[in-house]
């Protein structure tokens, strides 16, 4: 069981003039084990902050995040994270990037490289195992970043606009590959994106956040099987609904 339970979560940042900005307030969310969730919302709604709190990179001001029965207090390899920026260590070869988490846990060289090779193969980059990150394209780097997070065998995979910097075609291909990885590994995935299209294509459930203070506005379950047809009428309908919600909460300010 690796669900995520978020209860009455709030986060305030200090501003320069001494007052506080309420980034998140009263966020309640239950994420089931093996669920694929997308967080969407207008900029400033706190979706990245929420993800970073789940990761343990930020601390909540109020409320709690419970993963697998334990409250989150700081970063932990059990919650893997894929960042929007390229986060591979440029001084390590692909295989040693992927093996990094295992190395931190004290797994021996032979064994961690074997595990790393397994995940590198899973993302289809076996012939690049000895390459340095600068030799890879943007899409390949994000695939390695995903393999690196998976190699720790996390309960939850947190993804912060991981395909945001990629071109449209690469992005579509990466989405397909992510879905097949998800089906293979059955991880719970929390995925932050700006693209409603991406959210409808990928997720079991879209969580729409409203800004200032950031809070959950609506949760939309998408029951269709995958792969989904982006051009179908129902796909367009859900997209329109979500976009309208984002629009409304943006113009409500």
């Amino acid at each position: 069981m690796s669900g995520v339970t978020i209860r009455n979560l709030g986060k305030a940042f200090p501003k320069e003039d001494g007052t506080m900005t309420q980034a998140l307030e009263g966020v309640n969310l239950d994420i089931r084990d093996e669920e694929f969730i997308c967080l969407v919302g207008p900029s400033g709604c706190g979706k990245t902050t929420l993800l970073r709190i789940i990761a343990g990179l930020e601390t909540a001001t109020t409320g709690s995040v419970i993963v697998d029965g334990r409250a989150v207090t700081g970063p932990d390899p059990k919650r893997g994270m894929v960042f929007q920026e390229y986060s591979l260590f440029p001084w390590r070869r692909v295989v040693d990037n992927v093996a990094f988490g295992l190395e931190m846990r004290g797994v021996g060289k032979e064994e961690r490289r074997k595990t790393a090779d397994h995940y590198i193969e899973m993302v289809g980059l076996s012939q690049f195992r000895d390459a340095y990150p600068y030799e890879l394209s943007g899409g390949m780097r994000q695939r390695v970043a995903i393999a690196r997070a998976l190699a720790n065998d996390p309960d939850v995979l947190l993804m912060d606009e991981p395909f945001g910097a990629l071109d449209a075609q690469t992005r579509n291909r990466m989405q397909k590959e992510l879905l097949s990885l998800w089906e293979k590994t059955k991880k719970t995935i929390v995925f932050v994106t700006h693209s409603v299209d991406e959210a409808v294509y990928l997720s079991d459930r879209i969580v729409v956040l409203a800004p200032r203070p950031g809070t959950v506005r609506e949760s939309i379950t998408i029951p269709w099987p995958r792969p989904r047809d982006r051009t179908s009428a129902e796909f367009a309908e859900v997209r329109r609904r979500v976009l309208r919600m984002i629009d409304e909460s943006e113009s409500a300010q």
């Binding site: 990179l57 931190m104 846990r105």
Partner: peptide, 11 residues
Amino acid sequence: VFVEAGKVLGC
């Protein structure tokens, strides 16, 4: 981002 990656990977 390197520091944060290090943290979530177990440093």
